[in-house]
């Protein structure tokens, strides 16, 4: 009980402090002064795009990790999970030397296709996806591993193609884990900072998501930084409360 209250307090204290120190008397001015709506809209767009890509690419990856039988599978899993452990700035540096204008692949993208990811919203999405995708992969893989495979075998025995079985039997059965993983991915994406500022840069309306706006606001307007932080707290809490116990509790 004592440890539980200490745990709760350690999370609550910084949030409460933000409320206490917020410049309530000049809230409107602080809001417009630091471009809150632009940054918030960009943050939502970038985090949703990153979540969508993570699900589209991450679910097949989770399937390969759960079902594939090939040498090096554990190594592949370690590599896929790596962004969770790495400091995001390392991810940003890695992306820069890989996909930057002079990067290993980025040089080719730029010369052949005229494509530059750095300093673009697409670049922010790439950086955010890199950091947040492992969460949906891990959750989905765990779901696939815990699955009772008799249903899949039965569907296959009745003549269902592998794709049909995956779509109509496997996917619905792992849907709860996939959904929980997607929510965690989105939450991580919303808070992404290090990889984005290192790889995509920091420009209002293009790459400056809420965390970057907060970081920059500290330089010129510490009160504004608190207001922006509170907005991010409110958005995150509303989504988590709306999802309620569905994330971890019984269904």
């Amino acid at each position: 009980m004592a440890l539980a209250s200490f745990g709760a307090a350690s999370v609550l204290l910084p949030v409460v402090a933000l409320f206490v120190r917020a410049p309530w008397s000049r809230l409107g001015g602080a809001l417009s002064g630091v471009g809150a709506s632009t940054a918030l809209r960009l943050s939502i767009e970038v985090s949703l795009a990153a979540t969508a890509i993570s699900v589209v690419v991450g679910v097949p990856l989770a399937w390969v990790l759960a079902r594939g039988e090939f040498p090096g599978r554990n190594l592949l899993r370690a590599v896929v999970v790596l962004p969770i452990v790495l400091p995001p700035v390392v991810g940003g540096v890695g992306l820069l030397v890989a996909l930057g204008r002079s990067g290993v692949v980025g040089r080719w993208l730029h010369d052949a296709l005229g494509l530059q990811l750095t300093f673009t919203t697409a670049g922010a999405v790439v950086a955010t996806t890199f950091v947040s995708m492992p969460l949906v992969v891990l959750a989905t893989e765990a779901g696939l591993r815990g699955l009772d495979r008799r249903h899949e075998r039965a569907a296959a025995a009745m003549g269902g193609s592998p794709w049909y079985v995956f779509r109509r039997v496997t996917l619905p059965m792992v849907a709860p884990q996939l959904a929980a993983g997607a929510v965690l991915t989105w939450a991580r994406a919303l808070g992404e900072f290090g990889a984005t500022i290192t790889f995509a840069g920091n420009l209002a309306g293009r790459t400056q998501t809420m965390p970057l706006a907060i970081y920059q606001a500290r330089q010129v307007d510490p009160g504004g930084a608190i207001v922006l932080s509170l907005i991010l707290v409110l958005v995150s809490v509303s989504v988590l409360v709306a999802l309620g116990g569905r994330l971890t509790g019984p269904r």
Binding site: G100, R101, S102, I197, G201, L203, T207
Partner: peptide, 21 residues
């Protein structure tokens, strides 16, 4: 023409040495 507002001097230099700016 500004594509990024960096947090300190060293970060600005890094964007040019990386060849992106």
């Amino acid at each position: 023409n500004v594509v990024s507002n960096e947090d300190d001097d060293a970060s600005v230099v890094a964007k040019v040495t990386a060849g992106d700016a």
